[in-house]
Structures are given as structure tokens and as C-alpha cells.
Design a protein around this nucleic acid. Sequence first.
RNA 1: GGCCCGUUAGCUCAACUGGUAGAGCAGCGGACUCUUAAUCCGCGGGUUGGAGGUUCGAGUCCUCCACGGGUCACCA
Length: 495
Amino acid sequence: MDESKEKLTDQEQVRQEKLASLKAKGIELYPYKFAKTHFLDEIVALYGLKSREELENEKIRVKVAGRIMTIRRMGRATFFHIANSQAKLQAYLREDVVGLESYRLFDLFDIGDLIGLEGTLFRTKTGELTVLIEKFELLAKCFHPLPEKWHGLQDVETRYRRRYLDLIMNPEVAKIFVLRSRMISLIRKFFDDRGYLEVETPMMQPIPGGAAARPFKTYHNALGIDLYLRIAPELYLKRLVVGGLEKVYEINRNFRNEGISSEHNPEFTMLEFYEAYCDYYDLMELTEELLVYLCQNLLGRDEIFYGDELISFKRPFARIKFKEALLQFSGLSPSRFEQPSEVISLAKNFSPEKGAITYGKALDIIFDKCVKPHLLQPTFVLNPPREISPLAKASRDNPEEAERFELIIAGMEIANAFTELNDPVDQRARFEQQAEARKSGDEEAHWLDLDYLNALEYGLPPTGGEGIGIDRLTMLLANRRSIREVILFPLLRPK
RNA sequence: GGCCCGUUAGCUCAACUGGUAGAGCAGCGGACUCUUAAUCCGCGGGUUGGAGGUUCGAGUCCUCCACGGGUCACCA
């Protein structure tokens, strides 16, 4: 005990002494419950607009709890604010109301403590809704001083490592996560209303499939097998479509063993949905509908600011072919575009550390560098090379292109969708091609999944499938530049 | 992983070319019964991220390390 005891700061020492005093007075330090009549935000919602006269006449008695955030002691009366992540409320403690002994007890309370109050609502001279306290009780002591009341907690590292402190101090942070939660609820409603079935597919997979990415590896002791955290649910969801679940969606985590950046967290949340008998044109319609629906319901409009940029979700979204976008933004002439060696050497300029790359891969690199950053308004980029889209059908117009689109907004890839490849013979050939790429060192190449091929051999109906990055969508709607601002506990190196 | 920037009191931030490390908030003591960044008087609080080095003297300069941010690379 002595050895593990951390050194207390002077302020922490004071708080421990206050705790001891409370205990000595027989105060219950950690009561089992508090019979509140309302949550804080309910009080603000219900009574926040009542006039002084209404409050005076109605004598509304409440029991409410929260964390003490500020204290203004003025001799025989004290004002303080209590708050939770949603709301705050002022409280007024008077010696002549609660009595001297009780009033003195409050000297042992600090900013940060959790407190339960009982009293009546009134409005102060300046018009603020306030509880006139008749009784109060400690609900939990806070052992540490809180960050500064005016600037909040600024240090980003501490904000991410101790998100609870961030949430306590910075109300706008809580708003982001409320928005995120409401967005996910709306997505569920959107798909449920359209007859989709929400499903859960394996997070631990013997063959990690459905995306080009490096997986995390783990081991199952009893079975004695390697397993991989999923990089995508795609191949399982399509098995379900084979099984006759013709409209399915899943909102869950994917794991990719790759770098961390302002747009990448190793675990991230993905919406994937599949609808039988649809193609990617149908998906574009559905995607527009979904985004407008979310934007309208969350923000009440169809335009948002992302940084300085006004993003419009007015339908229809722009559509541009992958090839045309490249010609427009990369400076490649149509004749050079057709020359694989030219394209590959240009790509190598952007990505010198990359090993041998193919024509399709090179086009993709150039797209990322030259095109994506320019696409700020919602834009469907259609028909990337088939070679880099091994799970998508070839375009009905051009066999070298995939029937696939990526939705780019604010330079970020938000969605990726295709008319699913349902020809098992073609799919086998594509897997074999990927296996070749894997052999020549491409660690992100797709794995051969024989059971998935077997499922296709039973017949996957024509199907459209799409993935939407929930974190990035939240970034967009919450106007945040870093994915860490929309993930409660982003991955950091342990300290 | 490369490059750039950051790390100072519990928190938010200062400290010119190297010369005794400061302020506000928070805390402690006192005054104060409508305050709200309460106010007024007084007080305490630091291994300047860590380890070396240069120097009479290092928060400041150099090297290495740790963590974070940005950017490029890798990657959706």
C-alpha cells in the first residue's frame, strides 16, 4: 500500500482531508442511490422557459444531481453550478434555509464533487433558472482538482487518454458523441424502414476478406487455429444474400493493421449494406437519400460547413468517371493515360517507396494524390479499374472498368460500393490474380476464400453492396478534422 | 518510418540574445445573503517530460530517449 501510494499534490491532500472530515461526521461517502425526480437536462427542458412568476406560483420541488463545476461562496450564501454532459443548472445555498450546520458542511465540498440536491426552482434577479437548496448530499467525492473552468481541458493527449475528463470539461465534445449516436440510430431507422435486416457477422475470421488491407492476427487456444480480426464483413454479408436474406446491413467495427492518421484509426466503424436485385445505380440513389435524410434530421438543413467549405447535399450529387477525373486533375493527357509505363512512372513519383506496381494500382495512386483532394462537394467517382476491384462486377460498358463507385466528400472517401461480382468462375479467376499479387509481395492483396466461392456457386442474385465509413461521416457532420475527435477512445501508444 | 513543432505549478499559458522560473484560474486563510470568469485582502504551491553533455551559469544551446500534434510515406 505504502509503496504503491502515489504522491499527492497539495490540492489532492486537501481533498483527502475533507473526505476524512466528512467521514468523521458520519456522512455516507458513497451512497447507493439518489432518488432524483429529474435528470439535469430534463429540468432544463421542462422548466427552462418558465417565467419567474410561474415558478413562484408553482413551487416546483425537484431532486436533481450533478457534478459541481463552479462555486461562488459569499459568506452566508453560496451559488454553484452542477452539470452533466448535457446540461447545467445553478444552485443557491443559503444558511438561513438549510441551517448553520448543514451550511458549514458544504465547506467540505469541492469543484468536481458529485452532489444530490433537493429544493424548489426559482429564477434569480438576472433571470437564471436556479434551485433553492433545502437539502443536499454527497454522492461521490472527486479526489483531483478539475482543469481550468474557463479554458477547459486543452491538452489533446490528455483529452484522448482521459476522455472522461474531456467530457466533464468540454461540453462540445459530448455533443459530438451525441450526434454520432443519433446518426447511427437514424441509419438503423432508415434501413429498418426499408425492410432491411440488421445482422452481425464474425469479427474473428479464419480468412480475412472483403478488403485490401493487412489484418490483426490472433490465436484460438482450444481450436488451435489462427484467426484474424475482420478487415470487412463483406464476404459474410454476401453469403447471407445467397441464403435469401435479400436486404441486410451491419454496423460494426473493422480492424486494419495499418498506420494511424487524422483519417485512420486501426479500429473503425463501418456500415455495410447489401440489397439483392440492385445495381450500383440504385445504390447511388439510396446513398443520396440516406445522406440527405441524416443531414436534415441531425442538422435541419442540407448544407453544412466543413471548415471553411460549404458542402451541399442537394441531390443529385455530382458524378464523374474515374478516368475523366484523372484526366481532369492529374494533367495526364489521354494518350499518356493509355500508356501503362507512363502512368506507372508517374505514380512512382508520388510513391517512391512502393515496390512493383501495376497499371491499375498506379492509376489508383494518382487518383489519391491528384484527384481526391479536389473533390470537396459530394461526388460519385464511377468505374475505377477492374483490376483494383476484385469483388466488383466488370462494367457493362467497359470490361476493364469495375461497376463501382466511391463517394468522395471534402476530399475524404466516405462510401465505396459496387454491383457485386456474382459469377463464381470470374470470382475464382480474380482471387487467383490476387494470390499472384500476394506472392509477389502485395500484403494487402485479397485472400482466396474457397467457402465464399462455394457460396457463389449456389447463386448470388444480382446484388448491390456498399460500405460507408461511420467515423468519417461523423467527422463531416460534426465538422471535425481528426478522426480522433469522433472516436471516444482512439488508439494511442500506452504511456 | 522520415521531416517539422510541442512537452514549464492541478489546469490555461508567460519567461528577449543563456543570468534568482512568473501570471490567471484552481487551492489555503480572512471579509461578504442574488452571484455567475463573483469581488476585495493575504498566503502556499515547480526535479521546467527523462538521461547525458557544453558552460562560471541551462527552461533556453547540443546529443539520445519517451509521449503527443502536423506533414510525407504506408494505408481507405
